[in-house]
Design a protein around this nucleic acid. Sequence first.
DNA 1: TTGTATGCGTTATCAT
DNA 2: ATGATAACGCATACAA
Lengths: 333, 333
Amino acid sequence: MVTLKMLAKECGVSVATVSKALNGASDISAETALRIQKAAAEMGYTPCAAARSLKTSRSHNIGVIFSDGTSSGLTHEHFAYILNSFKRRAEELSFDITLISDQPGPWGGDYVNHVRFRNCDGVAVLVADNAAPTAQELVRAGVPVVSVDYHFDNCSCIESDNVSGIRELVEYVYSQGHRKIAVIFGDDNVVTRIRMSSFFNTCTKLGLTIPEEYICHGRYHSGELSARATRRLMELPEPPTCILYPDDFSYFGGKQALEDMCLSVPEDVSVAGYDGISVGRVVSLTTVQQDTEAIGIAAANELARAVEEGRGYLPRTQVIPCSLITGATVRKI
Amino acid sequence: MVTLKMLAKECGVSVATVSKALNGASDISAETALRIQKAAAEMGYTPCAAARSLKTSRSHNIGVIFSDGTSSGLTHEHFAYILNSFKRRAEELSFDITLISDQPGPWGGDYVNHVRFRNCDGVAVLVADNAAPTAQELVRAGVPVVSVDYHFDNCSCIESDNVSGIRELVEYVYSQGHRKIAVIFGDDNVVTRIRMSSFFNTCTKLGLTIPEEYICHGRYHSGELSARATRRLMELPEPPTCILYPDDFSYFGGKQALEDMCLSVPEDVSVAGYDGISVGRVVSLTTVQQDTEAIGIAAANELARAVEEGRGYLPRTQVIPCSLITGATVRKI
DNA sequence: TTGTATGCGTTATCAT
DNA sequence: ATGATAACGCATACAA
């Protein structure tokens, strides 16, 4: 490791001078500055984040909470894309990403200690059903928190516009002549609640009454459950003409069930998903595309702002629009 | 931030004593140790990674290289799963994960400086086509490197067993009576070369001669290209009875093309993918399941060993078996 | 314009 | 069994 001290000796100046020269301070002669910088490059100097962090109490390191207890969000394309976008933007802003877990380690066994252990300048809660206490404690400790889709007190939040997402989807399906619309909801959580509200609200506005048996409660990301629900729906005396799945992934479970029943999409039944994952696009699935790119960027920007503004920062909520993708899986009837 | 100093004052002992007590040193009376530990818990002490790292020159931080230039591996389920598994295991071993990029930052603009900046104890190259120079430089700098599927000099490597993966797949398809087997290969890289070799080798052993027009060169993870290749194949005067796709994702592109041509799977043509991603399982796709779980764990274990053993560490290669999944997309003919 | 001194939080050595 | 002290690499207030 090449250190400032070595550079100082090499250049015959003091450590302070080297530090200033490398940080572009104004009170160093252009000549010495250049000389030092050249030496630094030649000797392969790399600053030491730990030392810097210790001195400045800024780590240029952002903690990312990204797990929902069972498995991490990495296994869901939607969340993986958000992380990807977040990471890229954060790096542009000169922040590193450290994945924060609540596994036992040198720090204890919870998110908050992990964050403090690593001196994170801020924390992004990208996936976490039950991170509310964590978020509160972090905020109290002065660590800025930005979350996606889940609202925590005094934290900025980036929300995907689930309300209009569902609304547009239902309206579109309606506009294609569908009246017997079945829906499978995901696990019961905040996002699901919002989508449910928007669904029923839109139906009411359209004068649609959805019979109880058209409303299923499944899970996100479960091919199995969606397949089962699909089978049940299509065996109804009066089957729906359109099924809305909780997400694109789930659709594939439904699709499989339909094929097993020798029903084809969209001839026998129309379908739509939610998310806009890549494989859905390949098969021209009608869906609501969530703007993972924008969500990640907004989250990183907001967190950077929060870090920069420090105590004066005012949390705020941003809603990221999503867009309807009219694929080939919903047909006009 | 509660520091050792504060604890020392609170307990009326020296900083050194506190440090020892908290680290379970043997030369502290059980009594004082307990007293100090209790105080630490009460006051909410969390160690400071930066200070520790500075002092011990061990960061308990592992760098992960995870991008192939264009997009990060996060957008490929296969790699995301490997990262997921790697992360979990690394955390069990008390290592944090920092995603390493070659974007410009306080460290310069390349992987090596980024790793040094963060003082990483080791580096896992999970995705990177052209990380060879990086790996070499890291090794030279004394930073252990473990890679997945790509072999670097003096680095440990975790390989998925592509040779037997392809072999078993081809043998299985053959055993189901298929002789006219078409194949679409992915981008030209080390892994692809291995798979190609194994493919042709197996064919030769089986006495199969694959006509030129059955061999396509596509891309991984491209629905588009696979769709095009599929169309071309099926319009041949003598179309294949089975198509092998470069990966599961690509299969969905092919499937779409087949549906457009009113051909059904597996009645009109059998198909298989590679990887074993989740959505493939949902639709009962025949494929080769790569053991992402085992790959990630092995990589983390190996890296931890390398870090621990230091200079005495001897790099080695491990081959992780994969398993044939005989789905419903290949039929007996 | 440059250098000196101090301290960030921690561990480790050596006295006591 | 406990404490004083130095050092890790760096940034900064202040002195020169």
